[in-house]
Amino acid sequence: MTYTNVGKPGALENHPSRPYLGYGLGLRTEYYDTILEQQPNVDWFEIISENYMVDGGKALHYLDRFQERYPIVMHGVSLSIGSTDPLNQDYLHRLRALVERVNPLWLSDHLCWTGQGGHNVHDLLPLPYNNPVVSHLVDRIKQVQDFLGRQILMENVSSYVTYTHSRMSEWEFYSTVVEQADCLMLLDINNIYVSAINHGFDPIDYLNGVPLERVQQFHLAGHTDYGDFVVDTHDHPIVDPVWDLYARAVERFGPISTMIERDDKFPPFSELMAELDQARVIGDNILGKQQCTA
């Protein structure tokens, strides 16, 4: 499938090989019918891959409907690229089958581990930032990319712990992995903010520390604020400091496909659309200014 209307009219060219989709949403069952009825002004949708790794029923039925109407990208939560268990071949085959069915613009997962010793803990657990772990990840990302026959995007996760084994900053670690593995970045702006609060670093240092040409997608989301500690829950509206950080990210990286994740305490769809409009206003305003001064 080809999308002739992927780029927004007047959108800046950024990296020649980097597609720009505009402003999207995470596709969630709570909004299936509303989206199909209203056909809202959403440029693209991101699906959670595992939700469609089923044999039949509603999920795949709706997926087909959305595919007819919107560009789709796939986002996984179970690759467990950082685990010391062997890569799960069942999972990879199921993932490849879904890629063949959906034909997504791209697919992503997280730079983390989700299980060990044959167990899955269903959480995006952080890794120690050091060279042996970089090598471990690079080797496995290459295996996955070879298996799928395409580049994947790796996303930074929110974290609550720093291991005593870490020897470099998260952004240095992340950048080194994607450069060596020759994969792309899904930069989660909220996760950078959450981790910055929890670990006491400057989120601008993070943005400045990752390679421009590797970033292909942004995530935005809300979180739960406990004052000096923040938990990434995706159940609140996006807060002003994250909007500000997003603006800085657009200034640095240019036109990057941006979407909002909402996974709990689902508001009326109109509220989510208002948030998406806010992202659009912030992003297009900066991109427009950049275009004027170019």
Binding site: S83, T84, W113, G115, Q116, G117, H119, V121, L125, L127, P128, N130, N131, P132, V133, S135, H136, Y163, T164, H165
Partner: peptide
């Protein structure tokens, strides 16, 4: 704890 073997023991301890 810099070797891969130790990443495995770290993950096992986290899981425990």
């Amino acid at each position: 704890m810099h070797s891969l073997r130790n990443l495995k023991s770290l993950q096992a301890a986290f899981k425990r």
